[in-house]
């Protein structure tokens, strides 16, 4: 396998609120290799976004990274000074937000928002920056880039806005792209276009990508490897094929069962019973045990460690070996 680009070790990001400490990310470890796409999968509230924001150290208040290491090219980002981080954000590691309607500043033109980032990280003059910006718009396949660049965000459609956001993220050719549900707020057809575009650009620029989503269909198409999160912890981590065809964690199984299939007969949509737990006082032991159909008494007592059960297949479940899950996709 190729070289590690990003390695997160035992990351803990907590939010100190009036109601108590919300342990949004509670000991997550994962890694991204050069050139690979990692799918970060889980329900809403499982800690996907907070993990990604932690990498850039821009977790909004009252969120705080309390423990762990985030190694980027071997250097711990948590030990860097704020001005050193500013040089990494947008240049080395870029971020694409979920909702393009809110991630572009409404009062500045596309040109000024692109030029600002380009000039922040590259030593170029204004004219050169404008040319680079137009080139970027061409790269993300926006028609008439010389005209559209003068537009303000409200003048663009949702898909166009997300293309602009992609352009901004790619403006300095980052090595790692954190894409936080980049297509959730878009129409299905536009979704496919944006995902196709991202796939192409990733190959063209040779970047790595962390794709955050709750859509199993998208990760199946895009990701090389998948890490499944539940309630701020990693459940399972393996290659995409392994996750889909031989999952070992009950939560992964439940996620796969919940994927709606195109079928002639009308079936009831499968759901995972219960809701994601309260992260102020999470369930003891394995956090999934209250919703798990395989749970035994020990599951509420012992925190399952993330173990390499097969080569390159990490699972955090006490009963992973005994229960012998069959992939829902095979039935």
């Amino acid at each position: 396998m190729s070289k590690e680009l990003l390695k997160i070790e035992n990351l803990k990001t907590y939010f100190d609120t009036w109601a108590g400490v919300v342990k949004a990310v509670d000991g997550i470890s994962l890694e991204v290799e050069e050139g690979e796409t990692l799918g970060l999968v889980g329900e809403s509230g499982s800690g996907k976004t907070v993990t990604a924001l932690s990498v850039l150290r821009i977790v909004p208040r009252p969120g705080k990274i309390v423990d762990g290491r985030i190694l980027y090219r071997g250097e711990n980002l948590l030990e860097k000074k704020e001005n050193e981080m500013q040089k990494i954000r947008g240049k080395e590691i870029a971020y694409i937000f979920q909702d393009p309607a809110t991630s572009l500043n409404p009062v500045f033109s596309i040109a000024s928002q692109l030029i600002e980032v380009i000039r922040r990280h590259q030593n170029v003059g204004k004219q050169e920056a404008i040319e680079k910006a137009i080139e970027l718009l061409r790269l993300v396949e926006i028609p008439d880039p010389k005209i559209r660049i003068r537009d303000y965000p409200h003048q663009l459609s949702g898909g166009m806005k997300q293309r602009m956001a992609v352009a901004r993220a790619l403006s300095c050719q980052p090595s790692l792209l954190l894409a936080d549900e980049p297509t959730t707020n878009l129409d299905v057809t536009i979704q496919a276009q944006i995902l196709g575009l991202m796939k192409n650009l990733k190959k063209k620029l040779g970047m790595s990508m962390v794709l955050i989503t709750h859509d199993m269909g998208i990760v199946a198409d895009m990701a090389d490897r998948i890490t499944v999160l539940y309630a701020g912890r990693v459940c399972e981590s393996a290659s995409t094929i392994t996750i889909f065809y031989s999952p070992m964690h009950p939560y992964t199984e439940a996620l796969l069962t919940a994927v709606p299939h195109l079928a002639i007969k009308r079936e009831k949509l499968a759901v995972i019973p219960g809701t994601i737990p309260n992260l102020i006082e999470p369930p003891s032991g394995c956090r999934f045990h209250p919703r798990c159909k395989y749970a035994r008494a020990t599951c509420s007592e012992i925190v399952p460690p993330l173990e390499e059960i097969e080569p390159e297949h990490y699972v955090a479940c006490l009963r992973a070996k005994e229960i012998a899950i069959r992939s829902p996709l095979e039935s």
Binding site: P60, I88, R89, Q98, S103, L104, F108, V117, A165, R168
Partner: peptide
């Protein structure tokens, strides 16, 4: 609280630019 402020931070802009340019104008 808006996403575009987080996005401006994520682009590596200095805190000053984020506050006095992106946030203040709005």
């Amino acid at each position: 609280r808006q996403d575009y402020i987080l996005a401006a931070r994520a682009s590596g802009l200095s805190e000053r630019t984020v506050i006095y340019k992106h946030a203040l104008r709005n």
